[in-house]
Amino acid sequence: MNDEDLPQSEREDPRREFRHILMGLASASVLTALAFFLAVAKPLATGWLLAALGGLALVQIAAQFRFFLHVDLKKSHRDDLQLVLFAGLVIALMVGGSIWILFNQHARMG
């Protein structure tokens, strides 16, 4: 298809997509470096440190979904977005539930 037929926004696809991938690499690098710094320098009390590391991981996972997998709230096809969100819900329920039950069982056996 001739590029000239396309509106301006679509002609910029290659550059926009390249920028996305670069943003993915940059944000993941910064977040990873920050997480390593926290784990090595230990500037916080253990509880806060673990919470901060978990938070950084969640932010990085969201960033990678956004920039590498191109899942976003606006341009995504409905079904796919619902699939991803439903998988997120299933994972939260199963992981949260498993950890709750396993720790509770351990406490009862002690």
Binding site: A39, T46, L50, L53, A57
Partner: peptide, 20 residues
């Protein structure tokens, strides 16, 4: 890409949590 996302979780909850 998904394997790298899984690795972010493994890095955090196995290695960084192990060190911290």
């Amino acid at each position: 890409h998904m394997l790298d996302i899984v690795w972010v979780a493994i890095l955090t909850f196995v290695f960084l949590y192990g060190a911290a």
